[in-house]
């Protein structure tokens, strides 16, 4: 590879790290970089839509956020192709901590317990690998569609599962609705990882949620 290609390659990676780093955690960014290296690096014309669609962690984001990411990447890549930028110069280090910052959930006790359960599903399924996680997210959307739940709730749950963060302005609804959403989680986990794993995760999620202060007001078993 020529020297200027190497420089451009570094700049492109820096752009990816910076842009995706605003939305994803370190593991998600690393996974995207690996995908870039494996499949897209060195191409004259980069299919950004394809690239973004193939980043597993991005699938958890809402459509609007995915669009913003693509746009930011597009702008960054143009700069990276043109020459050295401050962005590229900055991006020589990567975050290495695999741990995700713990998010304190806010809302009613039922919502806090519910969100903890969703987060636990995400944590456990991520351990099983990106293919399982991707399958889970797709099954989750299908399960919620089957239950005639608004699509935005599926997107929001995916975000909680993937990033532990809650998108703004989500109305989770009453306990009955959250119960149906939690059931969708189990069905999706069954289909993505198998019933044995799903049972294990389900029990783990309940036990985790029992540790919460909110669990004293709202018993996690009420969802299940």
């Amino acid at each position: 590879m020529a020297a200027h290609d190497n420089a451009r390659y570094s700049r492109e990676r820096a752009v990816i790290s910076e842009v995706l780093g605003s939305k994803l955690d370190a593991a998600g960014v690393q996974s995207a970089l690996d995908l870039w290296d494996r499949k897209f690096a060195g191409q004259k014309s980069v299919p950004l839509i394809e690239f973004v669609n193939e980043i597993e962690a991005v699938q958890a984001l809402e459509a609007r956020e995915r669009h913003e990411l693509r746009l930011a990447l597009y702008k960054g890549m143009i700069q990276a192709a043109a020459g050295p930028t401050t962005t590229a110069a900055r991006a020589t280090t990567r975050a290495t901590s695999p741990t995700r910052p713990r998010v304190e959930f806010k809302g009613t006790p039922a919502e806090i317990v519910f969100l903890k359960i969703v987060q636990y599903y995400g944590e456990q399924l991520r351990v099983l690998g990106p293919a399982v996680m991707q399958q889970f997210l797709s099954e989750l959307r299908a399960a919620l569609e089957e239950r005639r739940m608004p699509g935005m709730l599926g997107d929001a749950m995916a975000t909680v599962a993937m990033r532990g963060a809650v998108p703004d302005g989500v109305q989770w609804g009453n306990t009955a609705r959250m119960h149906m959403l939690a059931q969708g989680l189990y069905v999706a986990a069954c289909k993505a990882a198998g019933p044995v794993q799903a049972d294990r995760i389900l029990l783990g999620a309940v036990n985790q949620a029992k540790q919460l202060e909110a669990a004293k007001v709202f018993a996690p078993s009420q969802f299940l």
């Binding site: 399958q135 289909k191 993505a192």
Partner: peptide
């Protein structure tokens, strides 16, 4: 089949 008994590509999940 039972929920999740087979994966999306037909792979068999053992349920002991």
């Amino acid at each position: 089949p039972r929920l999740g008994r087979f994966g999306p590509k037909g792979e068999v999940r053992n349920i002991p």
